[in-house]
Computed example of a mutant assay.
Amino acid sequence: MSAESIFLIGPMGAGKSTLGRLLADVLGRDFHDSDRIIEERAGANIPWIFDLEGESGFRERESQVIDELTQRTDLVVATGGGAVVRPENRQVMQDRAWVVYLRTRVATQLERTAKDKNRPLLQRDDPAKILTELLAAREPHYLALAHLTVDTDDIAPKTLAERIAQEYRIAHENA
């Protein structure tokens, strides 16, 4: 029997990829990272896609990948932080997946992303301001879409993956 896929949403640096791999292991599922799929298909990294196609080109690629992944079952998927900006992405995730919002503080995001040059939206002055603005714009979408919201700041990733798996099982045992 197949089961609903789990999509992890939240800002960059929330731990979506790390937790996604762990959660997939706990549940015995395949893990997919939407950003990595986009890079593989484009044959280029995300900063290059942003430079060549702009954010809108990247978002179009992202929508295609999210639509495809939401049509599959038994997956754990880490999405990009901005996956929720497009209404069509929110709709397919809401209709076809169990969504977990990984919430984190801006200070934690700064620590986790400080050395990562693969994040085009942070390659500007004042990353703290950018992260704060992005969170203000996106958090209403994260909260409205999520079946479960968990804070990732002060908990070990393995412990959090086990907690999310438990919450998923509880939510689906009577479904």
Rank of each mutant, 00 (worst) to 15 (best):
I37F: 10
I38N: 06
E39L: 07
R41T: 13
A42S: 09
A42M: 09
G43P: 09
A44D: 05
A44E: 10
N45G: 02
W48H: 11
I49H: 01
I49E: 01
G54C: 06
G54V: 06
R59Q: 13
S63K: 10
Q64K: 12
V65K: 02
V65W: 04
D67A: 13
L69D: 05
R72W: 00
D74A: 02
V76Q: 02
A78R: 03
A78F: 05
G80W: 08
G81N: 01
G82T: 06
A83K: 05
V84T: 08
R86I: 01
P87N: 14
V92N: 05
M93A: 05
D95L: 09
W98P: 07
V99I: 12
V100D: 02
V100W: 00
V100K: 02
Y101D: 12
R103E: 15
T104Y: 00
T104E: 04
T104R: 04
V106C: 11
V106K: 02
V106D: 06
K115D: 15
D116K: 13
K117G: 06
D126V: 09
K129Q: 13
I130S: 04
L134A: 10
L135R: 11
A137R: 15
A137H: 14
R138S: 12
P140A: 04
H141K: 12
L143Q: 15
A144T: 07
A146H: 07
H147M: 05
H147V: 04
L148R: 08
L148N: 08
I155G: 03
